[in-house]
């Protein structure tokens, strides 16, 4: 019975000034978002949310996970998804909910003790809603990140033919075991397909090399050697060279070159091609 009263109180609190409260809410939120969302859009979103919340409370919902709140949850999920896609920060997203508390504060000044109790009760519900918003926000962000990682994996491993019998893999971005596996398979398959005996792995675009990455590179090179191809690693920057030595990684008898040009020159010499500069050629 007491619960029922509470719900009525909450509804009463929210509908004292009816539409006015919703309007103040919209103003408050659009102020905090600095006009990055259109007022009309914001107005529509928040009014829908407001009505849904009022409905849910009227039906006696007391926390976020109640059945009556499903409409509110759906609206909130959509709102935080949109915010996440548009690049808002988590606090900018959650502030939409918490602003409602601030809107209600002035009402308490001439309110009774019951009003204060109702406000506290509502505060608890709003806290739950705020947390829910952040949860769905980060979920959306994670989905975006996973999708991008998959796209990167597809994009980032081309095998190019530099010369007859010389292929190269320009690696760009951080190497992890999943990517190295893809690189390894593609490189080895390309060796068979093109009948190349020389392969160059260019790591100019790799920002950092740690023991794990070095391990992966070594594995690829040994596998290529097992198939009868020679591998050269090129594009080692001064910083990476220092890191490799500091970490105590040994590249044993693997040839490393500073630039792709040097590696190509070596690969050509190994496959018996001589480069001759003509006397009268233009430079």
């Amino acid at each position: 019975m007491a619960k029922r009263d509470n719900a009525v109180d909450l509804v009463g609190l929210l509908s004292v000034e009816g539409q006015d409260l919703a309007a103040t809410w919209v103003r408050e939120v659009s102020g905090s978002l600095k006009g990055r969302v259109g007022t009309a859009e914001l107005d529509r979103e928040l009014r829908e949310l407001y009505d849904a919340l009022l409905d849910a409370l009227r039906q006696g919902a007391t926390d976020v996970h109640a059945d009556q709140m499903s409409e509110v949850r759906a609206l909130l999920t959509e709102l935080s998804r949109n915010r996440a896609r548009q690049g808002f920060s988590p606090s900018e997203t959650a502030v939409s909910i918490f602003a409602l508390k601030r809107v209600l504060e002035p009402l308490l000044q001439e309110g009774s003790a019951d009003d204060v109790r109702a406000y506290l009760e509502l505060g608890r519900v709003l806290d739950g809603l705020g947390l829910f918003t952040i949860e769905s926000y980060s979920q959306t962000r994670e989905e975006i990140i996973t999708a991008q990682a998959e796209q990167l994996l597809e994009l980032s491993t081309p095998v190019v033919r530099l010369w007859d019998g010389v292929i190269a893999v320009p690696l760009v971005g951080t190497l992890d075991s999943a990517r190295t596996q893809v690189v390894m398979e593609k490189l080895l398959q390309a060796l068979v397909d093109t009948g190349s005996e020389q392969a160059i792995i260019d790591i100019t675009g790799v920002p950092a090399v740690d023991t794990q990455v070095a391990q992966h590179l070594l594995k690829t090179i040994v596998a290529a050697r097992l198939m009868g191809a020679e591998c050269t690693v090129s594009g080692i920057s001064p910083q990476i060279a220092q890191t490799i030595v500091a970490l105590g990684i040994e590249f044993d008898d693997i040839v490393t070159k500073a630039s792709l040009a040097d590696a190509l020159k070596l690969a050509l010499r190994r496959s018996g091609v001589d480069l001759v500069a003509h006397e009268g050629a233009q430079r």
Binding site: M184, E185, L188, K219, R225, L226, M227, G228
Partner: peptide
């Protein structure tokens, strides 16, 4: 040894046989 397949080469490396 000639004509080792890529998959075989990867397996051998994973087994630690160089």
């Amino acid at each position: 040894v000639v004509g080792m397949r890529p998959a075989v080469a990867i397996t051998l490396v994973e087994l630690g046989l160089s």
